[in-house]
Amino acid sequence: MGERTHLGELELVVMLALLRLGENAYGVPISRELKQHCGREIALGSVYATLERLQEKGLVSSNLGEATAERGGRAKRYFRATTKGLREVRETRQALMKLWRGLSELEGHRA
């Protein structure tokens, strides 16, 4: 089994956004997904830096798509979670669930 690569908070939410978007995961929709589900706007530059870090860890791959006129002739860069990335998200989820379990303060929406 390969060595574990621990995910930071932003890395985890970006991975989850990628998985939700599937084939259409490039900068703009990823940023919107993060805003919609996390309630905060994260600068596109920070999103790209996180994605590149994930790619350097082998958790994400990317490819350039077609250039379109509405983007001034610039190509979209599509991102996709790799098998290693999927495994990492699953393991992070399990670890978080273990930590979550049995915390009475966080159950039943009590303040």
């Binding site: 900068g27 596109l44 530059g45 379109t68 983007r71 979209k76």
Partner: peptide
């Protein structure tokens, strides 16, 4: 290049 395209979009 892709970031500039995203920002323009």
């Amino acid at each position: 290049e892709p970031l500039a395209g995203d920002l323009l979009e």
